[in-house]
Simulated scan of single mutants.
Amino acid sequence: MIRVVLADDEPMVRAGVVAILSTDPGIAVVGEAGDGREVVELVRRHRPDVAMLDIRMPHSDGLAAAAELAKVAPEVPVLMLTTFDEDTYVAQALAVGARGFLLKAADPRELILGVRSVADGAAYLSPRVAHKVIARLGDGLARADEARRRLTQLTPREQDVLALVGLGRSNQEIAGKLFLAEGTVKGHVSAVLSRLGLTNRVQAAILAHEAGLVADP
């Protein structure tokens, strides 16, 4: 069972997210909070498998909560909820260690996929969120050229693995897709991070989008 703590200052949004996640018998919301301070205490108490945070909340927002959780509960992955006009916040959330980003208006299936992905140790970036973050970070064409140049350091199989990391797939899912042993996939992911000078799967996922390995909608 994947245990989730959810924070959003809008009760109707929380109710909708809980309703969607409850359709998956393998996911349970074990705590709800209306601001960042509350969610930190809930995570301390429940030690969930995923903390899902709205980026903007009163008193203490999702960014502050994510930064605090990185200190007090680093083993709990953070999945951020965002809207289209919050790409600046998304870039900041990357810096404090968030592992995934979901659009509030996304297909409900994305919520379940995102929760499962980060719980399995993968990153999850909604493709449209990734597109906006990349555009915000700088000159898209220059970054794309640089990303493609960096990909020349990878073998074709490592590029296949990176593309699936960019889609938020876990090692188990990548293994099934590419007909590889899960241990082999872990080795490929480690090699990709090392060759490209990256520290985590979120950075790898963004580079996969920049290089065009993942098609943006």
Rank of each mutant, 00 (worst) to 15 (best):
L63F: 01
E68R: 15
K71Q: 13
V72F: 07
P74G: 08
E75N: 07
V76M: 09
V78K: 12
L79S: 05
M80D: 04
M80I: 10
L81V: 02
F84T: 08
D85T: 08
Y89L: 15
Q92S: 11
L94G: 04
L94F: 14
G97V: 15
A98F: 10
L103Q: 09
K104N: 01
A105T: 15
A106Y: 05
P108C: 04
R109V: 06
E110Q: 14
L111N: 02
I112E: 01
V118D: 06
D120N: 11
D120H: 08
A122T: 11
L125S: 02
S126A: 09
S126R: 08
P127F: 09
V129Y: 05
A130I: 03
H131G: 08
K132N: 08
V133R: 13
I134R: 12
A135R: 15
D139K: 13
L141Q: 11
A142Q: 14
E146S: 07
E146I: 04
A147Q: 06
R148H: 04
R148I: 05
R150M: 10
T152A: 06
L154M: 04
T155W: 00
P156L: 06
R157P: 00
D160M: 12
L162R: 01
L162W: 02
A163V: 09
A163L: 10
L164I: 08
L164T: 03
L167Y: 03
G168K: 13
R169Q: 14
N171M: 09
I174W: 01
L180K: 14
A181V: 02
A181E: 09
A181R: 13
T184K: 12
V185K: 00
K186L: 08
H188L: 14
H188N: 06
A191I: 02
